[in-house]
């Protein structure tokens, strides 16, 4: 047990929380935007996976991590666009559409990986690039904070910036207002001239963009290669984080960090000689518990709201 405490109370552990939260945070922000527009994007997991592979492949062929990042993000937007086209134009059930996207991504990435590298497990034969880590001048020399906050992958900082960007967009821009109004009452929004379909398109594409960033981070930052099904449920954990965060930017960010910490803790638990099979279940169990606590709180609130009119 002592060894566990010494691991948790180290700057390395705090550093690793930021590191593992990044993809969850990106995807959770994506889930937030589409959810606020009244359309739940459960294809995030698949979008991240496609983006992760696209980043690796394009960076290997162009010898540029940045081109890889751009292509990864574009592929995320494209998959989200396909989902949007089917759900908004063809009226495909949004959940079934999301299942289809995830199924496509899980098998399709292996298919393309095999065609391009001759391997079905990992992209080790491709000379892919990674995005740089950034040392923050001045901050990196501050004791405790320096080793925790400095030296992260550039996308980790981008994910923090994305929190502010999403917050600003939702609260202060016409687009944010349209997204919120469409999500809350599409008919009312329509009646004052907001195009519901176009707004939902935009929201889904933005969620694809954010999930694309998360996917790129997985294969070009968190790891330096693509492996089969490497997102490992992070898209789903993000969806849970978003609903637990009550669809607010601040709440979603906090719950993302909570689940990130659970992930980091699972990695740290290996020092206790707990079987790795059981440790692997820890982040998912934490997510179920988190979701449950949230759902119980919500239903209490609903009950109270339902009782009130009679009291008065």
């Amino acid at each position: 047990m002592d060894s566990l405490w010494s691991v948790i109370w180290s700057t390395d552990f705090a550093f690793s929380i930021l590191r593992v939260t990044t993809p969850i945070l990106f995807a959770a922000l994506g889930a937030l935007i589409s959810n606020r527009a009244g359309i739940i994007n459960i294809g995030l997991e698949g979008i991240m996976l496609v983006a992760a592979l696209t980043g690796v492949v394009t960076s290997a062929y162009t010898h540029s991590a940045w081109v890889g990042l751009l292509c990864a993000v574009l592929s995320g937007v494209m998959i989200a666009g396909i989902l949007a086209f089917f759900t908004l134009q063809f009226k495909t059930h949004i959940i079934l559409g999301g299942i289809a996207i995830n199924m496509f991504a899980s098998g399709g990435t292996v298919f393309f990986l095999y065609l391009l590298s001759g391997d079905k497990g990992a992209s080790s034969s491709l000379q892919s690039k990674v995005l740089p880590n950034v040392d923050i001048p001045l901050l990196k020399d501050v004791p405790v904070l320096g080793p925790i906050l400095s030296g992260h992958n550039v996308l980790t900082y981008a994910s923090i910036a994305a929190v502010f960007a999403v917050y600003y967009m939702m609260k202060r821009t016409p687009l944010g207002l349209r997204i919120r109004s469409v999500g809350e009452n599409p008919h009312a929004a329509q009646s004052v001239g907001v195009s519901v379909v176009r707004t939902q398109y935009t929201a889904l594409l933005l969620s694809g963009l954010l999930a694309g960033l998360g996917g790129a981070y997985m294969s070009m930052g968190y790891l330096s290669l693509f492996t089969r099904d490497m997102t490992a449920g992070r898209g789903w954990i993000a969806i849970a984080a978003e609903s637990m965060g009550r669809s607010t930017t601040v709440g979603t960010t906090l719950t993302s960090f909570l689940f990130g910490a659970a992930n980091a803790l699972a990695n740290a638990l290996t020092v206790l000689k707990i079987p790795s099979e059981l440790i692997a279940t820890f982040p998912y169990a934490a997510t179920v518990i988190g979701l449950l606590v949230y759902a119980i709180g919500e239903s209490r609130k609903r009950k109270k709201a339902a009782v009130k009119p009679n009291e008065g």
């Binding site: 089917f86 289809a100 496509f104 098998g107 399709g108």
Partner: peptide
């Protein structure tokens, strides 16, 4: 490679559930 089939399956789901 056999994973081709998951692309086909995804298309079946998307179109089948498209009202």
């Amino acid at each position: 490679p056999s994973e081709m089939i998951s692309i086909v399956q995804a298309i079946i789901i998307l179109l089948l559930s498209a009202e």
